[in-house]
Design a protein around this nucleic acid. Sequence first.
DNA 1: GTCTATATTTGGATAGAC
DNA 2: GTCTATCCAAATATAGAC
Lengths: 191, 191
Amino acid sequence: MGRAPSIEDEALLKQLTEVFRRSGYEGASLTALSSASGLHRASLYHRFPNGKPAMAAAVMASVEQIFSDILDPLMSEDDPSTAVAEMARRVGAFYDDGRLACVLDTMTLRGAPDDIRARATHLATTWLTAMAEIARRAGASEEDAARRARTALVLIEGSLVVARVLDDPAEFRLALAELPQTLIGGPGNAG
Amino acid sequence: MGRAPSIEDEALLKQLTEVFRRSGYEGASLTALSSASGLHRASLYHRFPNGKPAMAAAVMASVEQIFSDILDPLMSEDDPSTAVAEMARRVGAFYDDGRLACVLDTMTLRGAPDDIRARATHLATTWLTAMAEIARRAGASEEDAARRARTALVLIEGSLVVARVLDDPAEFRLALAELPQTLIGGPGNAG
DNA sequence: GTCTATATTTGGATAGAC
DNA sequence: GTCTATCCAAATATAGAC
């Protein structure tokens, strides 16, 4: 067995993810990724022999894993309202209360590899499906449930942009607080 | 007088703006800016002696000008509902029906110069103020008007992200279509 | 005002010692 | 597994001809 890594895979991915989220794919330089992780550039290449595209792919895979946890309450929790509230809590933690951008936003600008953009599209679809399902379970029609899910995603992504631009997390917090209402509340739904 | 420019300032700014909107500040390489404008890199430096930061600053100034036109109906048009509809139409044109991202999003990632980010913040504030004013004029309380304006901005920015990620302008079109409702419709307002 | 040519720096990537 | 040293390409920027 070789020498133990100075930073475990999970912690490493977390640091790399943060850089990609803050700077976007092209803005995430090897220098930035290196200093964030504490590993020299050559060490990053040892972990990711295919370089920056591989790092970005690993980040996307990591985020997919994190989202499977974020969305888990929507499947496992019986009460839809409780389920959405718990999902909102986990979303808030992942976005560090609005201080971190979404990979769906920063990894889909021109310059990002096609496979990364495709993964972002897939992640968005997964998220939308899970949110639509909980709305459906709370009594919404299929059409209304799909609409509510899209609105929820728009509010989360938009509030993250606004929070960044205004340097104020208030809008993001509000979007999360209203998520149960957005997905399962109001007219036409039992929630 | 010297030789006439091969591309007029206005057209040049439009091309540069598109690159910055698609790629973000760091992703907008001189090569990309050059091929989009049809000018060689050295010619871009002739127009902007302070290089890429100056190009980005000029782009922000240009966008500020465009927004003063986009927001003009909110001041000059008597009927709030008509005013918002016309603003929405101009917003749709500026974002090319959801195909172009917002500078508020792409120019505020890490790596963009501080003064560019500050201009983005200022632009967002100007936009919010103008939208809050029309909501106020339509009968909303000051608090409700401010809330509606923030929601409108969140919906526009979020729907642009979602439209890009899903490669489908539908969500953006919907956000624009519902803008009158968002700003001046519903309970608690005369619109 | 635009061009070709070139300088300089940064970013991405590799080789080989430890 | 991480490091120093190095290579190569791309990005930013400048000089000077036309």
